[in-house]
Design a protein around this nucleic acid. Structure first.
Lengths: 188, 188
DNA sequence: TCAATTCGCAACGTGAAGTAGCGAAATGAC
DNA sequence: GTCATTTCGCTACTTCACGTTGCGAATTGA
């Protein structure tokens, strides 16, 4: 009907937001700051995104590189690899901060929670594939609740690394993997 | 040397903060709001606590009733009871919000993280006692890393209930408890 | 009694959220 | 090509919370 919204402006905003998030953390990623650095007017940002939440989510979307699930031939091997990668990512304080911020916003706002879910970084997909392969190999019963198994797998790592903010050394990591594999096998 | 700080004022601030947290959630618990509701001057609040973080932590301290560890005679029974109570508490959205807020603030500020640690609501103490009893009964090896076992136990519940914000039905709960007990027994 | 400190009050500065009005530029419809 | 419509960038504004400062009055230890 009339002048369309500028794609170039949208791209610039997202790129600016992204670089702020990566360089300085999500807390610096305010509408004012994006406007200042990008040269784009605040009003334009509000027209495009309606607020910093949607802007951050748009910036995050696409940064999330889906992990191709490893295939080592055993559930233990696959989970070892998946969680190893997960912990490497979680070593970045900005990412832990980002995760905590998203959890925080999700608790305040169900709409944000739903959007967050769509964009989230998670080893979830890989873990599902690893579990399906383990079922195909008859390594675990085909009747298990895969979603529950996922929490059984990633919960202990998240608890120690995110909630408690403690690193895991190699021994702890292996011990946890072994115990978790035993737990998954014990699932009905 | 001179006039001491008013204990009455301090108590009033803490009580006001507490009631705001319980009634409206931690987000409404700002210095301005506490001042408005309590009739105490903002400056006085800053003199006493230096900011809303310390005020909230002070308000929380004392609300946390330590849970007396259940003693059912088996690790499974103890963990069942402990996690059941934990989930009942986590059913309150204001508490999940509070937890997310604390995690969020902890990521930003190591000092807050340390203070948070001292005040935190957690079934940690009970779980440690349950594990020690299980060791005494030779239900699990005496060599296990108790802290790691704790994450193995509470991680899956936290992952599903806090991170994912999903409730657990009775079947899921029992399944998870069984799998976790198997995992703890598999610890070296 | 007196010096020191607190309390309550009012005002101020900062920073971010979000909104409003305006001129200029761009674009779809005709 | 013309024109109505919408966007864009700008400036300015309101609101809210944080945190600070200065001041008179009240309180208390020495």
């Amino acid at each position: 009907m009339a002048r369309p919204r500028s794609d170039a402006a949208r791209t610039t905003m997202i790129d600016t937001a992204r670089s702020i998030i990566v360089r300085d953390g999500v807390h610096q990623c305010t509408v004012d700051e994006v406007a200042r650095r990008s040269g784009i007017a605040k009003t334009t940002i509000y027209r495009h995104f309606g607020g910093s939440d949607a802007l951050v989510l748009a910036a995050l979307d696409g940064m999330v590189k889906a992990m191709e699930p490893p295939d080592t031939g055993s559930l233990r091997g696959d989970l070892w690899e998946i969680q190893r990668r997960y912990l490497r990512v979680a070593d970045d304080p900005r990412l832990r901060e980002l995760y905590a911020w998203m959890l925080h916003r999700s608790m305040q706002d169900p709409v944000f929670a739903a959007d967050f879910r769509a964009v989230r970084v998670q080893p979830k997909g890989s873990t599902v594939v690893a579990l399906q392969r383990a079922i195909a190999r008859s390594e675990v019963p085909p009747t298990i609740d895969i979603e529950l198994a996922m929490h059984l797998i990633q919960g202990p790592f998240a608890s120690k690394r995110i909630f408690e903010n403690e690193r895991l050394d190699d021994d702890e990591f292996d011990t946890l993997i072994d115990a978790i594999v035993a737990a998954v096998r014990a699932l009905p």
